[in-house]
């Protein structure tokens, strides 16, 4: 990786990219083990999306439910969420994700935690952002070992939602509506198109509208992330809050 001194962290960049996707008034739900999406959702809420509803699993302040995840997943199944964030140990060129096992499912090399609600959420949340904190040929692969949640499904199935973007430290990928395959939309400052391709295990065409360099976080975004967002995140993810933001 090219070494360039940046004035922000990878987490701040990814959170800002997530925040920019959210429009005011949209409902944003964040699951477990998702500190970067939680930061992005709170950044949007603190800046251009004050009327958005934000739900964060594991938070007291951002969890207005009284029937646990039953109530949360029921809302999701009614199609009430505009955004949710998923990840995977492996992601393939269509955007299928693997949270089950590396290797053969019955004799895995590594057994992963499993999919929780992802096999429903990927279908029922209008815009799903895949976020991944490592972008390597081992994580972005031609064929994944197990499809925990599918980017495409049979036409007979009711599916109002699906993949919106893939966000990694290196790049933003988007799905081509025709081919159903991922394309390179933008690369992060300090990287290059070549570096993104070299770290992707499948062939990654350019987005038809052209590939650009990702706009880095603006001073206003960084100020909010390092102020109120960090403070709010600290009550959910204290270790993350201590490490992910520049002082």
């Amino acid at each position: 990786m090219t070494t360039v001194a940046l004035h922000y962290t990878t987490e701040e960049l990814m959170a800002a990219l997530i925040a920019r996707e959210i429009r005011n008034g949209e409902t944003v739900a964040v699951g477990t083990f998702s500190p970067i999406p939680a930061s992005g959702a709170l950044l949007a809420k603190a800046s251009h999306a004050p009327d958005s509803e934000v739900f964060i699993m594991g938070s007291r302040d951002w969890w207005p439910f009284s029937e646990g995840s039953l109530e949360f997943f029921s809302l999701a199944q009614r199609g009430r969420f505009d955004f949710f964030f998923l990840s995977g140990a492996q992601i393939d060129r269509q955007g299928n994700i693997n949270l089950h096992a590396i290797g053969n499912y019955s004799r895995p090399k590594v057994r992963l935690p499993g999919g929780a609600g992802s096999a429903m959420l990927y279908y029922m949340v209008k815009k799903v952002i895949l976020f991944k904190t490592d972008h390597t040929v081992k994580s972005f692969v031609e064929t994944i070992d197990f499809i925990t949640s599918a980017a495409s499904s049979p036409p007979a199935l009711y599916r109002p939602g699906g993949l919106h973007l893939v966000i990694t430290p290196l790049a933003v990928l988007v799905k081509n509506a025709g081919s159903g395959l991922l394309e390179l939309l933008s690369f992060s400052p300090g990287t290059s198109v070549e570096e993104v391709r070299a770290n992707t295990g499948f062939s990654l065409p350019d987005f038809s509208g052209g590939v650009t360099e990702t706009t880095p976080p603006a001073p206003e975004e960084l100020a909010l992330l390092r102020g109120p967002v960090r403070e709010s995140i600290a009550s959910i993810y204290p270790r993350f809050a201590g490490q992910a933001f520049k002082s």
């Binding site: 199944q77 089950h100 499912y105 999919g115 096999a119 429903m120 959420l121 990927y122 279908y123 029922m124 197990f146 499809i147 925990t148 949640s149 599918a150 495409s152 499904s153 049979p154 199935l157 009711y158 599916r159």
Partner: peptide, 8 residues
């Protein structure tokens, strides 16, 4: 809802 199309 969902699930169909995955390896579940």
């Amino acid at each position: 809802r969902g699930v169909v199309g995955s390896d579940y």
